[in-house]
Write a protein that binds this DNA or RNA. Structure first.
Length: 908
RNA sequence: GCUCGCUUAGCUCAGUUGGUAGAGCACACGCUUCACACGCGUGGGGUCGCAGGUUCGAGUCCUGCAGCGAGCACCA
């Protein structure tokens, strides 16, 4: 078989995904077991605005690991893919395109514009789908969903109508965040607070009929034109007699009242607050409490209105600010201006400073919807957040402090609000225009021009993708979903709302677990962003190192924030290559071998290294399986890496070479039948095959590529639930880690052999013995079992240490002699390994080597002795712990003794 | 202002019931050993941010402090 020395990820990646997909391997229907347990995940739908970034690759990797693991474990698995229409983001992107073409959405008109957006959605959506295929995501494409699909749109209308009927959704005037650039209302979650250096202006308002003035501090002087009161704290002595007094509002020529309100903090500023109910959320609330009039002085374009006065009308809000301040100065009413840092709200999309405005919009009373999710969390800790801290608390706190959600957006791209208005001013909320007509009793209806917040449809994602509002088999089978994997910044926007709708409409939580991934920063610790242009494109990394290697890095990130480190990908690329070459070796020596064979004899008859690797394999399977269940992906990856590289490659394959390669170097074949050889080869191939299965959820491509090449693979290896399915590693059963195959004795014995080899290699290296130089090894122990283990494996040890000669006692009662001119090492249990170096040895060098070793032992002995001398320790620590330390102490003493003897042998 | 996280080898990070500090990369030395130089072998490197406390015993638990970061609230 001709296999290249270096693994080429590309060619494997190109072939296998297409085969899996064509074979229907991703759909849950591939599972024929009617009693199979169910595992389901809905993908956080990527926005159709662009391409996938590293954060997506991270989430998708974790979801795919879980899905593949569960699928191989016999679960009926469903991972639903899809995309989000991403209302405002997408509209902005398409509008930008139009601008380049010299036109605009207004020129095109609503209908034509929407056509353009759909066209964009086609292109962008298919690009994202291709990228997900590249990632290896084993999603069920037959169930792919888009938030604007007809069916999901029906769910949106149903959601809206039902909530409206229950008075959870209402239409009315309210204080909203308005983006003057995008010309739409925004919810509180769509604006970002940003610290900003600014000024605090102290303005004086004259008290009517008095020489007194009241000073108010403000960061937005231009809003004073809309003031309808000044508020003070009722307990504030300074202003007590002013409450109820009338002030002359400068510039506006209006009279306003001084009111008392607990909201005012006497400690801040002057203790007197100007109240602008039409342009500030807190003032709006205060306005309601005191029945203050609303004076709108800023319009939707952030320009001053006619009500701001002729002098200001039409000015931009910042121009108006300067003009107002100048006027106050002229009038001698500007007390002072101080530097002041405050935070400002910006549009989450375009970064324009938002304007709080009173506006007629649709709102949702979320507090009511949050009641049952809150109970679920308090009573049953559902859903289970990973990591629990801090997200359980973050989620709970948010649910406890909900404000009404501004639902309507003055956009064109999105779900049109299912509300119609009759000519006589009635509002009809209905599932469709037909229903609306029927209910209204007229055809003369005008639909509300606005669309819904994009998160409104997202809130339904787990149920709508599965068929809600219809009672579909999918909804019954796959809901609630098993886990949601997402980033922390959308816990409020999305996670909590899915719980609200899920619980409301089905009575059940949307997911059992919520796994919040860490964030990937650039190598300087900066957040990756388009504007900083410091993002790392996953596709470039895939191209450079392969998808499998990248997935290992991503899986290792787990829940902690990490700086992107390309070295790590390189390291896992090397790991992939290691796997490739290990398999290459196995395949080059696979004559007569078949997967699954070679382990037919009684286990007691197996060679040590066979018992050992089977034990290690099962231990690894157990650790990895448990780690994945607990979302400890890093532990799983580390365990697999070290099992494969250290145990399988460094030791098992090396041990197997002795047998396997004897087929090539014929003189060592004596006494062994050809069957013996092919069985040994089968064992290696079988362990390799099991290892590939263990690795598959993390590294789907290379494992499939190699699995297909193994002799004896086929349908018969598939998990019983996948009878009749295509022959692929992804449908084999995940190794379970059988307790009865974990062999402590074999692991201990093998550890001894490994230590012997390592010690001899250390001697070689420290004594500068040429690699080509053959040496002799002398082994001396009083432990019969150890002596036997050594004897059984002496050929292996010779091979791995390049020894030409071996000497050990046929029976421990007659120990072998160790020549004076030998380099020695003392093992645990006091066994000695020596390498005679007559004529080669540098006594001083060897003394130094032994001295270093003794020093190490002495250091540990000192610590142990101290601990054991501590009466409190002996009395209070668990007995087994104490016994353990005593044992270790005894061992060290024994080794030190032997070491001293060795050193004496060198004393001149 | 409140809440929370992080601080471990030169770098990026593990360290899950408190019980001899780990990995990868980097570094040093030696190897074209018949799977792999994206490799093999050997080795060096850490008072686990600082200061206290609990404990027989603390990287791990508690308190305080410092630096970095996140979220929430307020911001007239």
């Amino acid at each position: 078989m001709d296999i290249p020395k270096t693994y080429d990820p590309k060619q494997a990646e190109e072939r296998h995904y297409a085969n899996w997909e064509a074979g229907g391997c991703f759909a849950p229907e591939i599972n024929r077991d009617p009693n199979a347990p169910v595992y389901s995940i809905v993908i956080p739908p990527p926005n159709v605005t662009g391409s996938l970034h590293m954060g997506h690759a991270l989430q998708h990797t974790l979801m795919d690991v879980l899905t593949r693991f569960k699928r191989m474990s016999g679960y009926r698995t469903l991972w639903v893919p899809g995309e989000d229409h991403a209302g405002i983001s997408t509209q902005i992107v398409v509008e930008r395109e139009l601008k380049k073409e010299g036109t605009s959405r207004h020129e095109l008109g609503r209908e034509k514009f929407l056509e353009r957006v759909w066209q964009w959605r086609q292109e962008s959506g298919s690009r994202i789908m291709q990228q997900m295929r590249r990632e290896g995501a084993s999603v069920d494409w037959s169930r792919q969903r888009f938030t604007m699909d007809e069916r999901l749109s029906r769910a949106v209308a149903e959601f809206f109508v039902r909530c409206y009927e229950e008075n959870l959704i209402y239409h009315g005037e309210g204080m909203i965040n308005w983006c003057p650039k995008d010309q739409t209302a925004l919810s509180d979650l769509e604006v970002d607070k940003e610290a900003q250096a600014g000024k605090l202006y102290y303005l004086q308002y004259p008290v009517k009929g008095s020489a007194r003035r009241v000073t108010v501090a403000t960061t937005r002087p231009e809003t004073m034109l809309g003031d309808t009161a000044v508020a003070v704290n009722p307990s504030d002595e300074r202003y007590r007699e002013l409450v109820g007094a009338t002030l002359e509002l400068p510039l506006a020529g209006r009279e306003i009242m001084v009111v008392a309100d607990e909201f005012v903090d006497p400690e801040f500023g002057t203790g007197a607050v100007k109240v602008t109910p039409a342009h500030d959320p807190n003032d709006y609330a205060m306005g309601l409490r005191h029945e203050l009039p609303l004076v709108k002085v800023i319009d939707q374009h952030a320009r001053m209105t006619a009500d701001a006065g002729a002098e200001f009308e039409g000015l931009d809000r910042y121009e108006a600010r300067e003009r107002v301040v100048a006027k106050f100065e002229e009038l001698g009413l500007l007390e002072k201006v101080v530097d002041y840092e405050f935070s400002i709200s910006k549009c989450g999309r375009c970064r324009t400073v938002v304007e709080p405005l009173i506006s007629l919009q649709w709102f949702c009373r979320q507090a009511e919807l949050a009641r049952r999710p809150l109970e679920l969390m308090r009573e049953r800790h559902e859903p289970r957040f990973v990591p629990e801290n801090p997200y359980e608390k973050v989620y709970t706190n948010w649910l406890e402090n909900l404000h009404d959600w501004t639902l309507s957006r003055q956009l064109w791209w999105g779900h049109r609000i299912p509300a119609w208005y009759t000519e006589d001013g009635r509002t009809i909320v209905a599932r469709s225009v037909e229903e609306a007509r029927e209910r209204a009793g007229t055809d003369k209806l005008t639909q509300d021009p606005d669309v819904l917040d994009t998160w409104f449809s997202s809130a339904l994602w787990p149920i709508s993708t599965l068929g809600w509002p219809d009672e579909t088999p999918d909804l019954r089978t796959y809901y609630p979903t098993s886990v949601l994997i997402t980033a922390r910044d959308i816990i409020f926007l999305w996670v909590s709302r899915m719980m609200m709708t899920g619980v409301k409409f089905t009575g059940a939580k949307a997911f059992d677990d919520v796994f919040i991934t860490g964030t990937i920063f650039d190598k300087h610790g900066q957040r990756m962003s388009k504007s900083k242009n410091n993002g790392v494109d996953p596709l470039e990394i895939f191209d450079k190192y392969g998808v499998d290697a990248t997935r290992l890095v991503l899986a290792s990130i787990e829940t902690t924030d990490t700086r992107w480190n390309e070295n790590q990908v390189e390291s896992y690329r090397n790991f992939a290559n290691k796997i490739w070459n290990a398999a290459r070796f196995c395949l080059m020596n696979s004559e007569g071998a078949r997967v699954g064979e070679g382990f037919d004899e009684e286990r007691g008859e197996w060679a040590l290294h066979d018992r050992w690797i089977v034990s290690r394999l099962n231990r690894t399977a157990r650790v990895v399986g448990e780690a994945i269940e607990k979302y400890q992906f890093h532990l799983a990856v580390q365990t697999l890496y070290h099992f494969f590289w250290d145990d399988f490659c460094d030791w098992y394959i090396e041990f197997s070479k002795y047998t396997i390669l004897t087929g090539i170097t014929s003189e060592q074949l004596s006494g062994h039948t050809p069957e013996f050889l092919s069985e040994a080869r089968s064992r290696v191939i079988t362990v390799l095959e099991q290892s590939l299965r263990l690795l598959h959820p993390f590294m789907p491509f290379i494992t499939e590529e190699l699995w297909q090449l193994l002799p004896g693979v086929g349908e018969h290896l598939l998990h019983p639930a996948y009878k009749g399915a295509p022959s692929t590693i992804m449908l084999t059963s995940y190794p379970e880690g059988k307790a009865e195959l974990i062999d402590e004795r074999a692991e201990t014995d093998m550890q001894t052999i490994i230590e012997i080899v390592s010690r001899v290699r250390n001697i070689r290296s420290e004594m500068s013995i040429k690699p080509s130089q053959e040496i002799e090894i002398i082994f001396r122990t009083t432990d019969e079992h150890l002596n036997e283990v050594f004897g059984n494996n002496s050929a292996q040890i010779m091979r791995l240490t390049r020894a030409g000669k071996m000497n050990y006692a046929t029976h421990v009662s007659t120990p072998v002699e160790i020549p004076r001119a030998s380099a020695r090492a003392v093992l645990a249990g006091g066994a000695e390994v020596a390498v005679p170096l007559e004529g080669l040895i540098d006594f001083a060098q060897e003394r130094e080597r032994l001295r270093k070793e003794e020093e190490k032992l002495a250091k540990e002995a000192e610590r142990l002795r101290g601990q054991l001398a501590n009466e409190n320790f002996v009395a209070r620590a668990p007995a087994e712990k104490v016994a353990e330390l005593r044992q270790r102490m005894a061992d060290i003493e024994q080794r030190t003794g032997a070491l001293r003897q060795s050193m004496e042998a060198f004393a001149e």
